[in-house]
């Protein structure tokens, strides 16, 4: 975690230096995208935080690890706002992923019964 935050700080610092050096398309530096303006207003955070320089690379890496075809990843990321990307970078492992209900329900009923069995509330699994 420390290495991760160190890495983030380094890249953030580097991006700021690059911007100050005018290496990032200076023509549009003052233009604030509508989605960014909304995120800044809602979260009361700085634009640099909203446009987390590392989020895109982070999410990209995690998605490939999660089995997404690398050829598809960039198209998927391009459809998200910077704020959505930085949120995803933090919670892609835990955020709700809607999948198949029916199969899992069978599993959870079994787990519940098992817990009840183990805690002695029921004894349907014993022969005696």
């Amino acid at each position: 975690m420390h290495i991760e935050s160190f890495r983030r700080s380094c890249v953030a610092l580097l991006s700021v230096s690059l911007i100050s050096l005018g290496m990032q398309t200076p023509a549009a530096a003052g233009i604030v995208g509508t989605a960014d303006a909304i995120a800044v207003a809602q979260q009361q955070t700085d634009l640099a935080v909203v446009r987390d320089a590392l989020a895109r690379a982070d999410v990209r890496e995690q998605m490939v690890t999660m089995g997404v075809d690398p050829a598809e990843v960039d198209g998927r990321l391009a459809a998200l706002t910077p704020a959505e990307l930085s949120k995803l970078a933090g919670d892609i492992q835990q955020a709700p992923a809607g999948g198949d209900g029916a199969l899992a329900v069978v599993g959870i009923v079994f787990v519940v019964l098992l817990i009840l069995e183990l805690t002695g509330v029921i004894d349907i699994f014993k022969k005696t």
């Binding site: 998605m63 690890t65 999660m66 089995g67 997404v68 075809d69 598809e72 198209g75 998927r76 459809a79 998200l80 959505e84 949120k87 995803l88 892609i92 955020a95 709700p96 992923a97 809607g98 999948g99 198949d100």
Partner: peptide, 23 residues
């Protein structure tokens, strides 16, 4: 599916349903 499905999570994230809608 190639635009929203996350194989290791066996599901799709809300943010990606939103992204795919835009696409």
């Amino acid at each position: 599916a190639p635009q929203v499905y996350l194989p290791r999570r066996h599901g799709s994230l809300q943010a990606e349903l939103i992204g795919a809608t835009r696409r």
